[in-house]
Nucleic acid binder design. Structure first.
Length: 228
DNA sequence: GCGACAG
DNA sequence: ATCTTGTCGC
């Protein structure tokens, strides 16, 4: 028995929370020169458990430390409400790191930032809660449209219905599908793109997220093996 | 009413 | 996200 169905009125309640929180999102230029510690987060699932990982890298993209968290999933996956499903483990990982004095200068999350119907994807929501700059890097589109199809290394702006730029669609490597990069909190689309562009090491995903995903899968295999 | 739809 | 094998290529 996994997660329960969410009634239509409950959904509206969570959507209203997002409308209120999105007003607190701050978009501003963020220079990368003072970024020395970088965080990356990812979540995977096993039965009714969410397994979260928070990796910390130095400015040369080398791994500094890894934090883990496991919690029973209570919220169903609903496009647009992903944060409510993943936030419990993400926050748990983050506060473990904080207790060790390892608070990064910026955090990358697997999912959208403001490229979201209410401008509050998981990266924005998390950024508001911990008051840190965040960037969302998603492997699929949720909201917003591009004028042209992106080609290798050429970012295509992602617009909302008013013509505002929400983020960028970007192809980091030949023969791979595009990524959707958008600011979460305390940075703007341009800064998010510029900073993210410096996080690649030849793979499709930027290092903070690639490593977080790597450890998240390893944790999953261990738990799977540990259960049989 | 018909699609679209992060992880 | 997860369920899943081989296969083409560097």
């Amino acid at each position: 028995m996994e997660n329960a169905y969410l009634g239509a009125q409950a959904v509206q309640w969570f959507i209203e929370i997002q409308h209120r929180l999105s007003k607190r999102v701050i978009l501003r230029n963020l220079s990368d020169e003072y970024i020395n510690l970088i965080g990356g987060m990812d979540v995977t699932y096993l039965n009714d458990f969410a397994l979260g990982v928070f990796v910390v890298l130095d400015r040369n993209l080398n791994l500094v430390s890894v934090y883990y968290s496991e919690k029973r999933v209570t919220f169903p996956y609903i496009p647009g409400l992903l944060a409510f499903r993943e936030l419990p483990v993400l926050l748990d990982c983050f506060f473990q790191a904080k207790k060790q004095g390892q608070v990064p200068d910026i955090v990358f999350l697997d999912g959208q930032g403001i490229a979201h119907p209410r401008r509050l994807g998981v990266a924005s929501h998390f950024g508001i809660l911990v008051n840190l700059p965040t960037i969302g890097v998603a492997k699929k589109r949720l909201y917003g449209v591009c004028k042209n199809a992106p080609s290798l290394g050429t970012p295509e702006p992602l617009f909302d219905r008013n013509g505002d730029v929400l983020g960028y669609c970007y192809v980091p490597k030949p023969r791979t599908s595009p990524l959707y990069i958008s600011p979460g909190h305390l940075c703007n689309p341009e800064s998010a793109l510029k900073i993210t562009t410096k996080m690649f090491r030849g793979y499709k995903l930027p290092e903070p997220i690639r490593l977080a995903h790597h450890y998240t899968q390893r944790l999953r295999l261990e738990k799977l093996k540990r259960q049989e």
